[in-house]
Design a protein around this nucleic acid. Structure first.
Lengths: 207, 207
DNA sequence: TAGATTGTTAATCGATTAACAATC
DNA sequence: TAGATTGTTAATCGATTAACAATC
């Protein structure tokens, strides 16, 4: 266990979790790497390799216990830690996330949103209170959120990212279509580049 | 030119496009693979390899003409084709896209949205008219959109995907947290899995 | 026990990086 | 011409797949 874990493996973990959780809801108690492979569109070999980065969760001749494996993966991902997160920018995308997206299922507690607009400041959306961006420093230094959701206009993304890195935030979930360069800072940036995604689809359609 | 193009290369194309477009706005007329590599966080070798999948766009001793290269990549991606797209499901995420996202910059014209709710049907959001989902078949068969944006509740995603595949849609931009299996159908699915993305970040933060 | 299926090592495949001749 | 930088081939690296002994 604890071999070097590649990016490719980490990116597959949420997918494993999702399918195992579904299987669990369907009442499936155990599954072999072969069946899971068919269901997920992977190879059995790859699944066994992936899981063995973290430990031997299966049993020869039997397969894997669905609930146990799901919970192991949840734990590996840190979904049970409930780290604090904040949101920067409460526009349409920010609000869509606040109302429709369950941060808890992804291991986070969204504790505060920030914006500049009087339309949003002081109001609560999806149960999350919005404060003025001027209060960011004080809030972060006292509450120590580990993650920030960047849903502000792209012009302000780079500056805000540095500001957050300086404050010690450890992860940025970036919805602006900008590549953030936080050289030196120990910040992990996870990008959600809508445009890149749709352009990829455009390529496939026109192929 | 026209060597086999890997998934990895295709996924980098939008990023090349974005950076070249920025360089162009900055008034930069030419760039070497070395400088572009520094800017994009890649290696010069990889950039030259990537671009040579499609043709020799550079010039020895000079580098690449920024505007020309940007336009070549736009053309490779098909951003200049303006394919028709429709949206299925006009909830908060759908509306956020309709109001804030520029489909044209990604090679699509969003021509119609569909929903069931009387709150949305007959209304226009971000310049796109919403029709009742019952009119889907007629519309698709006459207008022949090549792409559908799936922003409906996840319970309905699988059924709707089959329906769209049957109607001859060629690409699905999937915002529901479900893996769609359209075996046999010639449909490319491009997923935007918010939860998978955030869970990945959760892993990094708890590492 | 016999059958099934894992964990793990070895083989293959593909993608990235390095090197350099071609040439602007 | 000399310097710079590409296009392209070869070398390396890493990830996926195959194979099989271990074992439940």
């Amino acid at each position: 266990m604890d071999k070097k874990v590649s990016i490719a493996v980490v990116r597959r973990l949420p997918k494993y979790y999702r399918h195992l959780d579904e299987l669990s809801s369907e009442g499936v108690a155990r599954i072999s790497s072969g069946s899971l492979a068919v269901r997920m569109g992977l190879t059995a070999s790859q699944i066994r390799q992936d899981l063995n980065c973290f430990g031997g969760f299966g049993q020869q001749g039997y397969g894997y216990n669905v609930e146990r494996l799901r919970d192991e993966i949840a734990s590996i991902l840190g979904l049970d830690r409930r780290a604090k997160a904040i949101m920067i920018g409460v526009g349409r995308i920010g609000k869509a996330l606040l109302y429709n997206f369950d941060f808890r299922l992804c291991g986070f507690e969204l504790v505060r949103a920030f914006d500049v607009s009087p339309d949003s400041v002081g109001r609560s959306f999806g149960g999350v209170m919005t404060a003025h961006i001027g209060e960011l420093e004080e809030f972060v230094l006292s509450e120590r959120p580990q993650c920030a959701v960047l849903t502000l206009p792209r012009e302000n993304a780079a500056t805000m990212a540095s500001r957050l890195a300086f404050l010690g935030v450890k992860g940025i979930w970036n919805f602006t279509n900008v590549d953030l360069h936080l050289d030196g800072a120990a910040v992990w940036v996870e990008n959600v580049h809508f445009a890149d995604s749709l352009m990829t689809l455009c390529y496939r359609i026109n192929e």
